[in-house]
């Protein structure tokens, strides 16, 4: 029995959507080793947000925009992958 799927004629086109700059994704999978800000903190562009251990380095992640930390989705020590939103700034 073959599990061949019928070939689709549909043409997939990548739609370019400007991503929300307030959603903080890791640039590479790693471990969040500590948070410098907490929920509700006001941040200015360039402020240090948290430390992401990845690529043999304790990377300091900076705020891309001015705003307030609305949500933190991970805990300290948690592994994060590329599509995880670590923090939301509005």
């Amino acid at each position: 029995m073959s599990e061949e799927k019928p070939q689709s004629n549909k043409i997939y086109r990548k739609v370019y959507i400007l991503s929300d700059p307030g959603l903080i994704y890791p640039f590479i999978p790693g471990t969040v080793s500590s948070f410098i800000v907490k929920k509700g903190d006001e941040v200015v562009k360039g402020d240090q947000l948290f430390i992401l251990d990845a690529m043999k380095m304790n990377n300091i992640v900076l705020a891309p925009i001015d705003g307030v930390v609305k949500k933190i989705n991970v805990k300290v020590g948690e592994k994060v992958s590329k599509n995880d939103v670590i923090m939301e700034i509005v």
Binding site: F27, I28, A54, M55, K56, N59, I60
Partner: peptide, 8 residues
């Protein structure tokens, strides 16, 4: 630049 993306 180790400050950014560990300098990769």
């Amino acid at each position: 630049q180790p400050l950014n993306k560990a300098g990769v």
